[in-house]
Amino acid sequence: MSRLELRHVRKAFGGLEVLADISLRVGAGEFVSILGPSGAGKSTLFQLLTGAQHGGGEMFFDGAPLDDHGGHFAFMPQRDALMPWRRILDNVTLGLEVQGVRRKAARARVAPLFAEFGLAGFERHFPAQLSGGMRQRAALLRTVVQERDMLLLDEPFGALDALTRTAMQRWLEQMWRHHRWTALLITHDVREAVFLSDRIYVLSARPAHIVREIKVPLPRPRSLGGDTARQASVEAEILDIILNPEPNPQPPKGYDHD
């Protein structure tokens, strides 16, 4: 049963065609990535989902047309977008506050999660007092406590240094195994996509269409090292697809088969 399903979604800004034909689906408890070169319109896709932009094609959530965008998604942008004037605790409860949850109740709800997110003791700190990795964990905590149906992660580790990014990817994989969030991740990092995802949609350059759907054959947990040789071969395969595009790209095949 797929939760999110897009059929032939397209979007143009003025005369510029950004998304040509995007069809994809995300199942319940599935971690799916959209992998593509920068400037391919990956973020535009999220804007369509969150209702910031409108485009052509059809979008369904749990089988129903996606019209009220607010309810289903919790969104995490590339830069943490923490509010510098709010303490971490108040940043994390922001989504609940917008939903109308009382401050005290909201705080009670997030308090037990601080330890799990490696933020215990930093509740009263301002974002500027935290390291990049911690800020990103706080941003993820702010995203998941909204208890929406699905997480939209827009290159969440793109602004981190390489070491922190790797640590965060391992940490996220671990967290995901415990919580089984339904998640859609945008990234241009092949290793990140392979490491985290159940399935990957490879996007072409603009105007974007789906070049290939890849089911990642690696067993979990992956954060302990795992099958590095197989991981490397999957990465190589995807890199080959991205860097050597076919001259006449075919319409997305792997849509019906699984």
Binding site: H69, G71, R79, A81, L94, E97, V98, Q99, L152
Partner: peptide, 20 residues
């Protein structure tokens, strides 16, 4: 991006003004 996050949370213009 703060505005984007707030919009995705379902905040209207007034909320976004006050909060961000």
């Amino acid at each position: 991006e703060i505005g984007q996050v707030l919009r995705a949370m379902g905040a209207g213009r007034w909320r976004a003004f006050v909060l961000a």
